[in-house]
């Protein structure tokens, strides 16, 4: 297993008036390719700040961060944007889809900034939507999709640039329990394909689907352990779409 993320002694200090807040206080973490990692912690524990730094949205005050062997902690805004575009896919709690825009157009959005246009962009968007089981909802707008479907469009958007890393911030925070299972099953199947997934949650029952659990408090990592992931099977007590079932069992085998 190759190392994808190697963060050493990350510090992030916010100055608020006279007082200094250490959002990250010496965090070191190493994550290999294909790992499915959950970060847990109470609010204010620094887990969101860690996600922002890992996602190249923010730069650490001190420490080093190598993503896919590239030192990215001192890059400028333009280069960080390029790194985000090529190496990282984001999934948000509130989906962040463009309103009144079709699923295909939403999914192909990152390609616009990667220099892929037209027919090729559309072909890849359709393929990404098929991967998340939305091959029949290509031209639907967000308002015509359920919450779970919207999140799957967002995941397809994160996948389209074929990133090494997917970062998800409370990806199931706005979803009901059954849809949550579907999304987790989808993540597990992506993990089986070698994509590294790191997600933040505050619910232990969601974190149990990950293969590794990092717990944070007061800007420090207080626990970091591998675990046997629970199998996310939305069909445990009901019938569901066939592809998801396959996905779920594949995730379970990993």
């Amino acid at each position: 297993m190759t190392t994808l993320i190697k963060a050493t002694d990350l510090m992030k200090v916010y100055t608020m008036g006279d007082s200094q807040v250490r959002a990250l206080d010496g965090v070191s973490v190493e994550i290999g390719s294909g790992e499915f990692v959950a970060i847990m912690g109470a609010s204010g524990s620094g887990k969101s700040t860690l996600m922002n730094v890992l996602g190249c949205l923010d730069r650490p005050t001190a420490g080093s961060y190598a993503l896919a062997s590239h030192e990215v902690s001192r890059l400028n805004r333009k280069m960080l944007a390029s790194v985000r575009n090529k190496l990282i896919g984001f999934v948000f709690q509130s989906f962040n889809l463009l309103p009144r825009t079709t699923a295909v157009d939403n999914v192909s959005l990152p390609l616009l900034y990667a220099g892929v246009y037209g027919r090729e962009a559309e072909r890849r968007a359709v393929a990404a939507l098929e991967t998340v089981g939305l091959g029949k909802r290509l031209d639907h707008k967000p308002s015509e999709l359920s919450g779970g479907q919207q999140q799957r469009v967002a995941i397809a958007r994160a996948l389209i640039t074929e990133p090494r890393l997917i970062l998800a911030d409370e990806p199931t925070g706005n979803l009901d329990s059954r849809t949550t299972l579907e999304i987790m099953a989808l993540f597990q199947s992506l993990g089986a394909r070698g994509i590294t997934i790191v997600f933040v949650t505050h619910e232990p029952e969601i974190a149990q689907f990950a293969s590794r659990l990092i717990v944070m408090r007061d800007g420090k990592v207080i626990a970091d352990k591998k675990q046997t992931p629970a199998v996310a099977d939305p069909d445990a007590d009901a019938h569901a779409a066939a592809p998801l079932k396959l996905v779920a069992s594949a995730g379970g085998a990993a």
Partner: peptide
């Protein structure tokens, strides 16, 4: 604002 944030997250540079 959120759309701008999203575009930046998925790779839009300030110039874009």
């Amino acid at each position: 604002t959120r759309e701008i944030g999203l575009r930046m997250a998925i790779g839009a540079t300030p110039r874009n």
